[in-house]
Computed example of a mutant assay.
Amino acid sequence: MTTSPHDAGAPSARTIVNRYRHLAHYDRPTIDAILDAMPVAHIAYLHEGQPIVTPTLQWREGDRVYWHGANNGRMMRATEGADVCLTVSILDGLVLARSAFNFNVNHRSVMVFGKAEAVTDREEKVRLLTRLINSFAPNQWDKLRPATAPEINATAILSLKIGEASAKVRSGPPEDNEGDYAHPVWAGVLPIRLTVGAAEPDPRNLPGVAAPDLSGYRIG
């Protein structure tokens, strides 16, 4: 299988898609778009010999994906320098078929494998945290109460190079067995979309404090 300069790399034994191979994507534009569309990721790792999966916020810069947590937290201590699998999934619809065994979901998902690397430079940590906060509300970091040195020190940021990764994308109607299309039962897709609602103010906001501009925030 050949790859282009925009690929995440030739599919490895860990990333190659064996089930529904026609849904597989290894190109970076597809992988990046899914990572950028969903801030919630799940990090899979081993802790004291036990498999753990932890949800967290992730964000991408170039060919790296980042996540943060408490320095003394289990996930950050167990994953630094260790092999992990980061996954992001977006549910786009329920696919109702004519056979129970052809029910499916329309979705976009990514798996990234590699060794988690810690960001240790303080200025770089602040820059990355600033980018995370400003991704929710533009220029919001500079309006917040300044972060203290203990807060920065207590926060760990890990990153993963997007070098060993694959995506799966399914869309469209059910794929039934040819003989089942004559079966008299409804089949089709129930679309599912994530939407951003109107901002709900904290009841303890100070009088006259304006809300940030959140009109550009999108998810999914």
Rank of each mutant, 00 (worst) to 15 (best):
E124V: 01
A137Y: 14
E175V: 13
Y45P: 01
P212M: 00
G179L: 13
D202W: 15
V209A: 02
A149K: 08
R19H: 14
A13C: 08
I43L: 12
I52D: 12
E175F: 14
A37E: 06
W67F: 05
V169K: 00
P29A: 00
T30S: 05
L190N: 07
A156R: 02
E80V: 15
D142Y: 07
M75R: 13
R14T: 08
R108M: 00
V40I: 11
E178L: 11
K161W: 13
A82Y: 10
T148P: 02
N72I: 14
A167K: 12
G220K: 07
K115P: 08
M75A: 09
R28Y: 14
D202L: 08
R108Q: 01
R170Y: 04
N106S: 02
N205C: 12
L91Y: 02
G114I: 10
D92C: 04
L23T: 00
E117P: 09
A24T: 06
A154T: 07
M75I: 11
P201E: 00
N72D: 07
W141V: 06
A116C: 07
V126N: 06
W141I: 09
G49M: 08
R170I: 05
K161A: 12
T120M: 04
V126A: 08
N106V: 01
A156N: 04
W141Y: 07
S215H: 06
